[in-house]
Design a protein around this nucleic acid. Structure first.
Lengths: 110, 110
DNA sequence: TGAATACTGTTCCATAAGGCTAAGTATCAC
DNA sequence: GTGATACTTAGCCTTATGGAACAGTATTCA
C-alpha cells in the first residue's frame, strides 16, 4: 500500500510539469535521443536532463545509452497506475466501494 | 492550449500528494466538513487547510460555507481533463495521432 | 590526432511546497 | 453573554523544484 501510494506521488508529480508531459507525448510517437527531445525547448541541457531523470525515476520512461547517445522510450505499463487510481475513484463515486477495495488491493500488492 | 496545459499542471500536482488523494477518496463517498476530513490526519488544521485550498484551486473539489461549517464535495467533471490526457497519450502510442490532435484541440478550446 | 558532438557533473539561485505555532474571527449551544 | 466549536490568517521554517552557468568526460568523425 505504501509502495503504491509512493509510486502515485512520483508519477503524478512527473505528469505535473508541461515539459515532461511534452516529452511523453513526443515519446508516444517513438523513441528519441536526449538531443532530439531537448531541441524544442528553450532550456539549458542540464536543466532538461533533470526532467529526463525525473521521468526515468518515475518509471514513465526508460533510457539506454549506446556510444555517446542516450535513447529514451516510453514505458506504457506505468500509466496503468494512473488508470487504476482513476478507476478506483470512479468506483467510489458510483458506490461500488466493495469491488473497488478488492481492485486496488490487488494492485497494491504488485 | 495554454489554459488546458496549466489546468493539467495544477490537477496533476494536486493528485501528487497522498493527503490530497485520500481526501478525494473520502469525498468520493459523499460530501464532508473540513473537520471530518481532517480527523484521520496527524496534521495541524492550517496545514490541512492548505491541501483543501489546493484541491479547490485545482477544481477537483468545491466548497461551501454555511454557518461555521465548510462543506467540501468532489467535482467529478475536473477528472475528465486527466482522462482526456491519458486518452490522447494512448492514441499516440497507437499511431492515431490525427484523431488525437482533433480530440485534444477540441478540449483545449473549452 | 584533433575537433566536434552528446551528454554529465557540480554548484548555485529563486521560488514553491508542506509542515508548524500562535492568535484571530465567526457561529452555535447553553 | 460566555464558552466551545470550526475554521482563518499570518508568520516562520525546511526541503524540493525548476531553472541557470560552467567545466568535464566519452565518442565519433575527418
Amino acid at each position: 500500500m505504501e509502495q503504491y501510494s509512493d509510486r502515485l506521488d512520483v508519477i503524478f508529480q512527473a505528469l505535473a510539469d508541461p515539459t515532461r508531459r511534452a516529452v511523453l507525448s513526443r515519446l508516444g510517437r517513438g523513441p528519441a535521443s536526449i538531443s532530439d527531445l531537448a531541441r524544442p525547448f528553450d532550456m539549458a541541457l542540464p536543466s532538461f536532463m533533470k526532467h529526463i531523470h525525473f521521468l526515468e525515476g518515475s518509471g514513465l520512461i526508460r533510457t539506454h545509452k549506446q556510444g555517446r547517445v542516450r535513447t529514451c522510450a516510453i514505458e506504457k505499463a506505468q500509466f496503468a497506475a494512473v488508470e487504476t487510481w482513476l478507476s478506483a475513484q470512479r468506483a467510489l463515486w458510483e458506490g461500488r466501494a466493495d469491488r473497488l477495495e478488492k481492485f486496488v488491493t490487488e494492485h497494491e500488492e504488485e
